[in-house]
């Protein structure tokens, strides 16, 4: 280390000891400083200057504009599989939103309106009896016969009450009367209609 310029007049290489004492603030002066009042005084003056520097720095430091705010105490870390309710709810909401949009935009097909049970099937089966020429799964009953609109139009059902106006005892006769104009040349119904007419005669 290069020799420092002396700050005392005692002629010895004392300045280094002064700086060491001031920097270390070791308390008791040792070596040359203990013997030389001049150097001891210089060390004391330097200490006082440095202390004054510290005090001045504090004086010229403003107070903190506000208190330090810490985050809310952290909850213990969960394992990656331990999802809380929030992410699960968020995921479910996102899924619903995406599906809703997909259906709304026609990307996802829902398969159209639900299939209607064929209510006419038992009736058709009963009418067919043992006839091997019967049409079997004939869609006529489903699409025309039991549709309420047709029944209402034909006067078979009261529009307001929904009650059927025909006589329960003559249901088959009424039905055949109703179906005659619509059945056309269908051999199955034509046979039944003729049978009914002959039985009446």
């Amino acid at each position: 280390m290069k020799k420092q310029e002396s700050i005392t007049n005692c002629g010895q290489a004392a300045c280094q000891q002064i700086f060491e004492k001031v920097a270390d603030q070791s308390g008791k002066p040792g070596g040359h400083l203990a013997d030389c009042p001049d150097c001891a005084k210089a060390a004391k003056a330097l200490e006082a200057d440095l202390a004054a520097l510290h005090r001045a720095a504090l004086r010229h430091t403003p107070t903190m504009p506000g208190p330090v705010r810490l985050p809310v105490a952290a909850s213990p870390k969960k394992p990656f599989w331990g999802f809380g309710p929030r992410p699960v709810l968020a995921f479910a909401a996102s899924l619903v939103l995406v599906l809703g949009l997909a259906v709304g935009m026609g990307i996802l097909k829902t398969g159209g309106p639900p299939a209607v049970e064929n209510p006419g099937a038992p009736l058709v089966a009963e009418l067919a009896g043992g006839d091997k020429n019967a049409p079997g799964d004939y869609p006529f009953g489903q699409t025309h016969i039991l549709n309420e609109d047709y029944l209402i139009l034909a006067g078979e059902m009261d529009l307001l009450s929904g009650d059927q106006t025909h006589d329960e005892d003559n249901f088959f006769e009424d039905f055949l009367d109703f179906i005659a104009p619509l059945a056309g040349d269908d051999p199955f119904f034509q046979g039944r209609i003729q049978q009914k007419e002959t039985s009446h005669v």
Binding site: M1, Q4, E5, I7, C15, Q16, F19, E20, V22, A23, D24, L46, D49, L50, A52, L53, R55, A56
Partner: peptide, 26 residues
């Protein structure tokens, strides 16, 4: 750290302008 500090203290001591300013302020 001590070596750096001794050098810095020596420079402080030789900076008469700052030392006088601090003494005056104190």
């Amino acid at each position: 750290v001590k070596t750096l500090l001794y050098r810095a203290v020596a420079k402080f001591e030789s900076d008469r302008k700052l030392v006088e300013y601090i003494r005056k302020e104190a």
